[in-house]
Design a protein around this nucleic acid. Structure first.
Length: 326
DNA sequence: GGGATTTGACCAGC
DNA sequence: GCTGGTCAAATCCC
């Protein structure tokens, strides 16, 4: 995050006083808070103005949701103790530059503050691919906690992790999902030929309903989500390009959607590998800059920026309760 | 056979 | 020493 980086540089390397850093820190938090509030107001106004306009309404809602989410993430990071302005710490020197670690450092308990936390009945539906790497029974809790890493943890050195813990036996059961570290893989579920939901939910589902039931669930959801995914990509292309493209019966794809889908078929993403595979930091062959060739109105649409999250992110349930940050 | 999941062990913080 | 987070060998599944 650039703001963080600048602050870190200014606060440490310039030799400025700690009080100046504190002021700067407060200003950043205040401005972020104001930005968050204004975004909420803008969203209300936009949705009122675009009410009943279908795709435009959904797109505006999604974009503003993402803006709001960015503010939330920044505020969470800036408010965490780890980001507190230096007070009595000596100014860092050049020798304090991060040394190459021999082993990936474990997360200290001070860093155990999640960048995001939510309670949901569908912990799997967050638009990313996760791989379970552990499960632990936590004392004084009824249900075990499951630990997930981004599937691209090794390939792209993505440090994003999440923890999923069932918190109630309601129907449907509720899960507390905590997210740690941001995705650096720049990859959401759309990039994969994997099932369109990530596997964490299936893991939980398998534990509860048995594998046969989970497979049936996957098949059913896969068909439905594939259909909805195409509709969303189609809608996005229409909105961005100002085109009102007819959807062929049963297809629901546009030229842009076809381009997206064709691209993925030509370049199937590398599947998640085991620990025995390529060393970390080595990109898989065939990786390419992640710009989807959506040739509408001359726009290049970064896949995560819009299309991924629109198709698979939290806003997948648009326009219902998919706006937890507003 | 390859990849994902399970699960006991290990490690670090408190 | 206890607890939570992660590792990695074993196992499972397709």
């Amino acid at each position: 995050m650039q703001t963080q980086s600048r602050l870190a540089v200014n606060g440490g390397g310039s030799g400025s006083s700690s009080s100046a850093s504190e002021d700067e820190h407060e200003v950043v938090i205040r401005e972020l808070t104001r930005g968050h509030e204004l975004t909420a107001q803008l969203r209300a106004e936009a949705l009122r103005a675009l009410r009943g306009q279908g795709q435009a309404e959904a797109t505006a809602a999604f974009i503003l949701q993402e803006v709001s989410r960015a503010f939330t993430v920044c505020l969470t990071i800036m408010s965490s103790p780890a980001r507190a302005p230096p007070s009595s710490q000596p100014p860092p020197t050049m020798e304090m530059a991060p040394a190459p670690a021999l082993a990936p450092p474990r997360r200290s308990r001070d860093d155990s503050i999640p960048r995001e936390q939510r309670t949901t009945s569908s912990p799997h539906n967050d638009g990313h691919q996760w791989r379970k790497y552990g499960q632990k029974r936590i004392t004084k809790t009824q249900f075990p906690r499951c630990y997930f890493k981004c599937s691209f943890h090794r390939e792209r050195n993505c440090r994003a992790t999440k923890q999923v813990q069932q918190c109630s036996n309601d129907d449907p059961p509720q899960y507390v999902v905590m997210y740690f570290n941001d995705h650096t893989c720049d990859t959401a579920a759309t990039s994969g030929m994997m099932p369109l939901d990530d596997l964490s939910g299936l893991v939980m589902a398998r534990q509860q309903a048995g594998q046969a039931g989970a497979r049936a669930l996957l098949d059913e959801r896969g068909v439905q989500e594939e259909h909805e995914r195409r509709l969303f990509v189609s809608s996005l292309a229409c909105v961005l390009g100002g085109h009102q493209q007819q959807s062929p019966a049963g297809s629901g794809t546009t030229a842009a959607a076809v381009a997206v889908n064709a691209g993925h078929q030509q370049e199937p993403p590398p599947r998640a590998r085991t620990r025995d595979d390529a060393p970390a930091g080595v990109d898989a062959p065939g990786e390419m800059p992640r710009i989807i060739d959506v040739d509408v109105a001359g726009l290049d649409v970064m896949d995560y920026d819009v299309t991924d999250a629109l198709c698979f992110g939290d806003s997948y349930d648009l326009p219902g309760d998919g706006f937890p940050f507003l």
